Deep mutational scan, measured.
Amino acid sequence: MAAGGDHGSPDSYRSPLASRYASPEMCFVFSDRYKFRTWRQLWLWLAEAEQTLGLPITDEQIQEMKSNLENIDFKMAAEEEKRLRHDVMAHVHTFGHCCPKAAGIIHLGATSCYVGDNTDLIILRNALDLLLPKLARVISRLADFAKERASLPTLGFTHFQPAQLTTVGKRCCLWIQDLCMDLQNLKRVRDDLRFRGVKGTTGTQASFLQLFEGDDHKVEQLDKMVTEKAGFKRAFIITGQTYTRKVDIEVLSVLASLGASVHKICTDIRLLANLKEMEEPFEKQQIGSSAMPYKRNPMRSERCCSLARHLMTLVMDPLQTASVQWFERTLDDSANRRICLAEAFLTADTILNTLQNISEGLVVYPKVIERRIRQELPFMATENIIMAMVKAGGSRQDCHEKIRVLSQQAASVVKQEGGDNDLIERIQVDAYFSPIHSQLDHLLDPSSFTGRASQQVQRFLEEEVYPLLKPYESVMKVKAELCL
């Protein structure tokens, strides 16, 4: 049975990233139509530049190519590739079939990587351009969430054990800070992308030097003109047959890092959902379990974690691919890159769409948070109580021993009897502590235990987050809708 299948058929496997999760716009960027249309555009740009620099290419040939950029006979191309065992030459023939007058000058002087690699770089750039505003929107939604809850005390956790208090907004800023680093890295790697350009079979530009009869300047002009037509500021000066596969490492490393950030955020949300302090959106008709109707599973956060793990592992592909590119190139890269580049971007696209949807509907339960604080705060307040007693004339050592005994009794009630923490009640009825009984409410005010959390939130948002989001103001209103 021949390899390949009808990918629109229910009898043929289709990647869930495309069929179930990723956005239509990201799927289109990695589609065959987008790819092969870009090949034709690159052939047109090459012909236009070659004509401008004096090669015998007519206006009629150029116009014929322009008129057929979208006229792609995919069936013919597939048949040609089956016959020739070469995808680029299959599309040269297919393009030439609908451009008979231009057929002889299509791909003039070029090698397969002229269309293959340059198209990949265009796709990487455009895919990054799709991700950047999506990530900015996630940051914006979380920034709104953090600002609104900047002063809401909550129990902090280290080692997932109760620690000092923080605020809900401050905790959210930990998430935002990681995503801001990801946004900066995505922008950097996007701006650092260079075009492969017009380089020939081993990167020496020998074929173009021959076409222009040894004119170095025209060869350099050709490279520059096509690079500018493709919208790049610069091209690699040095290439082998391909652009260095280190570029793929750079791009997928940034995406993998984004995956790590999203995994951490969504894990926190899942843990908070278990504590009943916070939940992701839950639709009115949504079913959490087929057997347990009360369940409210954090399905979206779980999906993000599941896909983020996949995204983090994909960076190993370009690392290994770059390491086995012998001399000017081997074909070890080809099949692998067809999979890992598309999957990385479709996965990143999915987790950003999902995280935006989550961040637009996060639900906080202040009463649950308050109750958990009441359970733990008495123990945390013991040092403040000791200091207040010393100020009232008591002995630190005597007070410490009193607190120690009462704390152990209260802990026994919590752990052995399943009761509430009654340390404060014990202190309130103990005559030894009568000098500070009137101060206990103040000493137990949760806001006095959150330090500068709310001020940190305000400063972080104003100095770091809002300036970073400013270039994306025009796209901030787009909502994230999930079908599944």
Results as ranks from 00 to 15, higher is better:
Arg40Trp: 03
Leu377Ser: 06
Leu307Thr: 15
Phe212Trp: 03
Leu130Asp: 03
Ala102Val: 04
Leu482Thr: 02
Cys304Trp: 11
Met76Phe: 00
Thr239Ser: 13
Phe449Arg: 06
Ile424His: 15
Thr111Cys: 01
Glu473Asn: 15
Gln63Met: 13
Val429Leu: 13
Ala90Pro: 10
Thr154Arg: 03
Thr167Pro: 08
Arg83Asp: 07
Pro446Ala: 01
Phe282Leu: 12
Leu69His: 04
Glu473Leu: 07
Ala77Met: 14
Leu468Trp: 07
Ala150Thr: 13
Trp175Ala: 01
Lys134Glu: 01
Leu124Arg: 03
Tyr472Asp: 11
His217Gln: 00
Gly197Arg: 05
Thr330Asp: 05
Ile358Met: 14
Leu311His: 02
Glu328Ala: 09
Phe145Asn: 05
Phe208Lys: 07
His437Ser: 11
Thr166Pro: 04
Gly288Glu: 07
Gly156Val: 09
Gly393Asp: 15
Met316Gly: 05
Val475Phe: 08
Thr244Glu: 07
Leu222Gln: 15
Thr154Leu: 05
Thr158Val: 03
Leu179Arg: 03
Cys113Met: 01
Gly8Thr: 11
Ala2Lys: 05
Phe232Gln: 07
Ile105Lys: 09
Glu50Tyr: 02
Ile385Cys: 10
Pro281Ser: 12
Gln161Pro: 01
Thr313Ser: 04
Asp120Glu: 02
Gln439Met: 15
Leu17Gln: 00
Val189Ala: 09
Glu463Asn: 05
Met181Asn: 12
Arg303Glu: 12
Met312Pro: 09
Ser261Ile: 03
Phe232Ser: 01
Ile139Cys: 00
Asn297Glu: 05
Arg309Leu: 11
Arg149Ala: 01
Gly288Trp: 06
Ala431Gly: 15
Ile436Val: 12
Leu484Pro: 06
Tyr243Met: 10
Ile358Arg: 09
Glu463Gly: 09
Asp349His: 04
Tyr13Met: 06
Gly5His: 10
Arg303Tyr: 03
Pro446Lys: 07
Leu346His: 00
Arg83Gln: 08
Arg309Gly: 06
Gly96His: 00
Asp11Val: 08
Glu376Leu: 08
Leu174Gly: 11
Ser151Ile: 08
Leu132Ala: 09
Ser67Val: 05
Ser438Cys: 15
Gly197Ser: 10
Ser257Ala: 13
Tyr365Ala: 14
Leu272Cys: 15
Leu355Cys: 03
Gly109Trp: 08
His91Met: 11
Glu250Asp: 03
Phe157Val: 01
Arg371Leu: 09
Ile385Leu: 13
Ser438Trp: 06
Ser407Ile: 01
Ile436Pro: 09
Asp59Val: 02
Val198His: 01
Gly197Lys: 02
Ile238Met: 07
Thr154Gln: 11
Thr242Glu: 09
Glu376Gly: 03
His97Pro: 00
Ala260Met: 13
Tyr114Asn: 07
Met76Trp: 02
Gln210Val: 02
Met225Val: 13
Leu152Ser: 00
Ser454Lys: 01
Pro298Met: 04
Ala235Val: 08
Cys113Ala: 02
Met181Asp: 10
Cys483His: 12
Val262Met: 09
Phe195Thr: 01
Cys180Gly: 07
Leu165Ala: 04
Ala102Met: 05
Pro56Tyr: 08
Gln41Lys: 10
Pro100Arg: 02
Asn274Ala: 01
Pro133Lys: 04
Glu463Val: 14
Asp248Cys: 14
Thr167Phe: 01
Phe433Gln: 05
Lys479Pro: 15
Tyr466Lys: 08
Gln439Leu: 12
Leu484Ile: 15
Lys295Leu: 03
Lys470Tyr: 08
Ala2Glu: 13
Val254Gln: 09
Lys199Tyr: 07
Pro153Val: 02
Gly240Thr: 10
Arg372Asp: 04
Met380Cys: 12
Thr38Ile: 05
Asn421Trp: 05
Leu131Ile: 05
His107Gly: 05
Leu271Ser: 12
His437Thr: 15
Lys402Ala: 15
Ala230Ile: 11
Phe208Tyr: 04
Val457Asp: 06
Gly116Tyr: 05
Gln455Lys: 07
Gln356Val: 08
His400Glu: 11
Leu307Ser: 09
Leu355Thr: 01
Asp349Phe: 06
Thr58Glu: 08
Ala47Lys: 12
Asp191Gly: 08
Phe145Trp: 11
Thr58Leu: 07
Ala322Thr: 01
Gln409Ile: 02
Phe449Ser: 05
Tyr21Arg: 08
Ser261Arg: 14
Ser9Asp: 10
Trp175His: 00
Gly259Val: 00
Leu362Ile: 11
Lys134Arg: 14
Asp59Ala: 10
Leu108Glu: 09
Glu250Pro: 01
Glu79Trp: 08
Gln320Lys: 12
Glu228Trp: 15
Gly231Arg: 06
Leu444Gln: 14
Val138Pro: 03
Arg337Asn: 10
Ser438Phe: 15
Gly156Gln: 03
Leu461Glu: 02
Thr111Lys: 08
Phe345Ala: 08
Phe379Pro: 13
Val465Tyr: 15
Lys82His: 10
Ala322Ile: 00
Leu46Gln: 04
Trp175Glu: 13
Asp441Glu: 11
Pro378Ile: 06
Asp32Met: 06
Ile369Leu: 04
Gln416Lys: 08
Tyr21Asp: 05
Tyr21Ile: 04
Ala110Asn: 00
Gln164Leu: 06
Met312Cys: 13
Gly4Arg: 08
Lys187Ile: 11
Arg40Met: 15
Ser151Tyr: 02
Ile287Glu: 08
Gln458Asp: 15
Asp144Trp: 04
Thr239Tyr: 08
Leu307Asn: 12
Asp87Gln: 09
Asn126Ser: 11
Arg338Gly: 08
Leu193Gln: 10
Leu222Ala: 13
Val465Thr: 11
Phe236Gln: 09
Glu417Gln: 10
Asp248Asn: 01
Ile57Trp: 10
Val262Tyr: 00
Pro10Gln: 12
Ser306Pro: 10
Arg309Pro: 07
Val198Pro: 11
Ser323Ile: 00
Leu314Cys: 01
Asp144Ser: 06
Ser257His: 01
Gly116Val: 05
Glu279Arg: 01
Lys199Glu: 00
Val189Cys: 10
Glu425Lys: 13
Asp87Ile: 12
Glu48Leu: 08
Gly104Met: 08
Ala322Tyr: 15
Phe212Met: 07
Phe232Asn: 01
Leu135Ile: 09
Leu179Phe: 13
Lys101Tyr: 00
Tyr472Arg: 01
Gln416Asn: 03
Asn336Glu: 06
Gly288Ile: 04
Glu279Thr: 13
Gln210Phe: 03
Ala410His: 14
Ala77Asn: 00
Leu193Glu: 08
His86Ser: 04
Thr354Pro: 09
Ile269Asn: 03
Arg33Tyr: 03
Ile249Val: 09
Ala22Gly: 14
Pro10Met: 11
Glu60Trp: 12
Lys402Pro: 10
Ser19Tyr: 01
Lys233Arg: 08
Glu473His: 07
Glu463Met: 00
Ala453Glu: 14
Ser257Ile: 08
Arg190Lys: 07
Val262Ser: 09
Thr382Val: 09
Arg404Cys: 07
Asn421Ile: 07
Gln428Leu: 10
Gly109His: 13
Tyr21Lys: 14
Trp326Leu: 14
Ala127Thr: 07
Leu352Pro: 08
Trp175Ser: 02
Asp32Tyr: 09
Tyr34Trp: 03
Leu186Ala: 01
